[in-house]
């Protein structure tokens, strides 16, 4: 049991890294990776939301969609549930945990409709994970995202000081960097 969970965790966090090998969640990966601090904030918000969302969506799948035999509607229902969940979490944090809200608050609405969140929920169903496995998978995927975005932000902070050729200034050099990172992360596939 533990062995299987560990295999899921490492597989999702590094080998099939959500950004660098599945190409999900590229938008925040490129948009919010200018500074390590904001990248870490975004990353932790993603960890928070994806872990919660995988738990809730797998509950919904098991106790609502399967009994009524309407699993083909999973995408629509998941979108609904995730959007509502993020909204609720934001309200809850604002009221009850002011410190966490100040740290994550601005990033939470950005992930409402993030494809990575929906992608993890759908992957959990596809791989027929049970609820515990779904949560572990969600946590691992989002930790993989956190690692990738923080590394990216670190590199981008250094790029600021480089003499980048004019044609590559701005987004092009960031995309080139992302590509090189993806190649580097392919090294993890040897872990299998």
């Amino acid at each position: 049991m533990m062995g299987k969970l560990l295999a899921i965790a490492i597989g999702s966090a590094f080998i099939n890294n959500v950004v660098l090998s599945q190409f999900l969640g590229i938008c925040p990966f490129l948009g919010v990776s200018k500074k390590v601090k904001t990248a870490a904030g975004m990353g932790s918000a993603v960890v928070f939301v994806i872990t919660l969302a995988s738990a809730v969506t797998s509950l919904i799948y098991k106790f609502l969609l399967v009994p009524f035999n309407i699993t083909y509607l999973q995408t629509i229902v998941f979108i609904l549930v995730i959007a509502a969940l993020v909204q609720f979490v934001e309200m809850f944090l604002k009221k009850k945990m002011k410190g966490l809200y100040n740290a994550l608050g601005v990033y939470l609405p950005l992930i409402t409709t993030n494809c990575a969140v929906l992608g993890v929920a759908l992957k959990n169903v596809q791989n027929s994970y049970n609820i515990l496995e779904s949560v572990v998978n969600g946590l691992a995927v989002s930790v993989g995202f956190l690692v990738a975005i923080v590394i990216m932000a670190g590199i981008r902070e250094k790029i600021e000081y480089n003499n980048v050729p004019r044609a590559f200034k701005g987004m092009p050099i960031v995309l080139v960097t992302a590509g090189l990172m993806a190649i580097a992360f392919f090294g993890f596939s040897g872990l299998k």
């Binding site: 919904i60 609502l64 969609l65 009524f68 035999n69 309407i70 509607l73 629509i76 229902v77 609904l80 549930v81």
Partner: peptide, 10 residues
């Protein structure tokens, strides 16, 4: 059933 469930969830 599909309409009821999704509508109900909404």
């Amino acid at each position: 059933i599909a309409v009821c469930v999704v509508g109900g969830v909404g």
